[in-house]
Design a protein around this nucleic acid. Structure first.
Lengths: 304, 304
DNA sequence: CCCTGCGGTGCATTTTTCGCACCAGTCGTA
DNA sequence: TACGACTGGTGCGAAAAATGCACCGCAGGG
């Protein structure tokens, strides 16, 4: 939409931190861009940028305007998607910010399932830690977020919520593989590999350990749950991950940690608060909610 | 904002039902307007208007686009108001769709009270029956609605709710003026003047009467509650109105109808669902909520 | 000190938009 | 039936807006 060009350029300038850089990226001259912004500021009635000696930066008014633009853009996308829908095309795009645990099984299956019914709908999957996922929603960079134990929850509107047990993962040769019920102390007594503090799994572990005057003290710490799953096959360490990212077939052994020690965490499906989603995102969200519910019902009985 | 010009013109065309008429209103030639719309439709990817032999009319896609524009415009107003607010100007505008009963006392007092604190804030008061008030919210024509017994309540987000008794009004010479408790049958047995069916007061009366196998059968029927209040001084009829629009000083006599016969109705303060209000509207709404609450607490005890 | 990179400005040029004149179609009516 | 009064759509030259180029003043760093 051509009429949003000025906003696009303002966003580019805000990102680049400099009019000249943004102009170069946009293949126009700096003077043109400069004028455009000056005109907009005049019409709007207030400057959007602070002029610094080495560039420009959005002022609070500019932040508000940029935010307004992002909301506009996403709402326009929703309108287009609805129009396409009512002309029978059933096209659209869904972007999801999700935690790593959803990558191996759940999301691929769900997306494939959805696309079998609606081949015109394309998907974008953004892997994010829980804070970045929330930021993605706020910036309208993702339509949906599927996050384990999100932190702030301002502007995060919960669409559906299920609980997930934290599991210990290890190789079949690990001493714990023969154990029946797994207590937290069993895991902490063995050498372990853990995700870094940004992740919900680690945060739950830290809290539970602290209340028992223990510490999570990993031999290996990483951001990648995929690495955790593979590493335990090479060294006898205990890894941690939530149940939805684990299946019995993959050659590794896992068992949920007793809920007496470690409460189940929350896997939340959410969107930007009070935003109207495109039809495709809405339908996919409702499929996800159904499937999450089904999945949590089929689990072994536990505190929900 | 110049970049919204095309949307403004689309709205004008939709209202006028004809490109030429809209062009004349907008002081441009029809050809220019025609091209503008054609360009927009091409860029948007779908036509917005049905071409009829005597003009044009929005198609469903056009309806969606127009609605998007209204939402965008109101959000821009909110942004501007916030920017003005953070630069310390404390300006703004609040538009209210309200029932007639709020006109004589409540709203004037509330607006004056608010404007004493914020002289920069201007007001627009749109008198609407309950259906039109809801339509006003949906079209972003009013920020707030203060309505007695609204009907549909889709897209109507309730900010605050108080109950109101329906009162009978009559001249001090009327036989009922000496009565202590007023039953519905007393009113219906006398000649009465009533608002038309669009209004909440009438609808409550009709329902209560019907369940007692009686009928509201007014000698005079009107849309104007002001006329009702004045008419009862000229002929011995019983009028009806909710309590908030009545004060003891005005030379007419009123008494609430026994709640055994007529349940209290709901006076609702609301806004368009999941819309971000400008700061001024938000503050004024919160003042209204407080005052409505105070007012309903100071009333004689009754079912709430 | 000069050199580089920044935002801002005057002016000619290009792109976009607009106004005028006109066409084709439809509908009501004389 | 024919004609006038509408409608939306189009070709083309004029007006307006946006842009590119060359340049200015300024601040910071080697």
């Amino acid at each position: 939409m051509r009429y949003l060009e000025t906003f696009r350029l303002i966003e580019a300038v805000a990102r680049a931190g400099s009019i000249r850089k943004a102009a170069e990226d946009a293949n126009i001259t700096a003077s043109a861009l400069n004028r455009r912004i000056a005109r907009f500021e005049e019409e709007f009635g207030a400057p959007l940028f602070e002029r610094l000696s080495r560039g420009v930066r959005l002022n609070p008014a500019g932040e508000l305007v940029l935010r307004h633009y992002l909301a506009q853009r996403s709402d326009l996308a929703r309108v287009k998607s609805q129009v396409a829908d009512l002309s029978g095309e059933r096209r659209g795009h869904v972007s999801i910010a999700c935690s790593q645990a959803l990558l191996p099984y759940f999301l691929p299956e769900q997306i494939a399932l959805y696309r079998r019914e609606h081949p015109g709908v394309s998907f974008g999957i953004n892997v994010r830690d829980r804070e970045a996922a929330e930021r993605d929603l706020e910036n309208f960079a993702s339509d949906l977020a599927l996050v384990f134990e999100p932190v702030r929850l301002v502007d995060f509107e919960v669409i559906h919520s299920v609980t997930q047990a934290v599991c210990a993962v290890f190789s079949p040769q690990h001493p714990l593989a023969s154990r029946d019920e797994l207590r937290l102390r069993d895991c902490l007594d063995h050498g372990h590999i853990a995700p870094s503090a940004r992740y919900g799994v680690r945060s739950l572990l830290d809290i539970a350990a602290k209340s028992r005057h223990r510490r999570v003290d990993p031999r290996v710490e990483t951001e990648s749950f995929e690495l955790i799953r593979h590493y335990v096959l090479h060294e006898q360490l205990v890894g941690f991950q939530i149940a939805i990212g684990l299946r019995p077939d993959s050659g590794i052994c896992f068992r949920s940690i007793s809920e007496r020690d470690l409460p189940r965490g929350h896997l939340l499906l959410g969107q930007m608060r009070s935003r109207a989603l495109p039809v495709a995102a809405l339908r996919f969200a409702s499929q996800l909610a159904t499937e999450l519910e089904r999945l949590s019902e089929s689990e072994p009985p536990s505190v929900r």
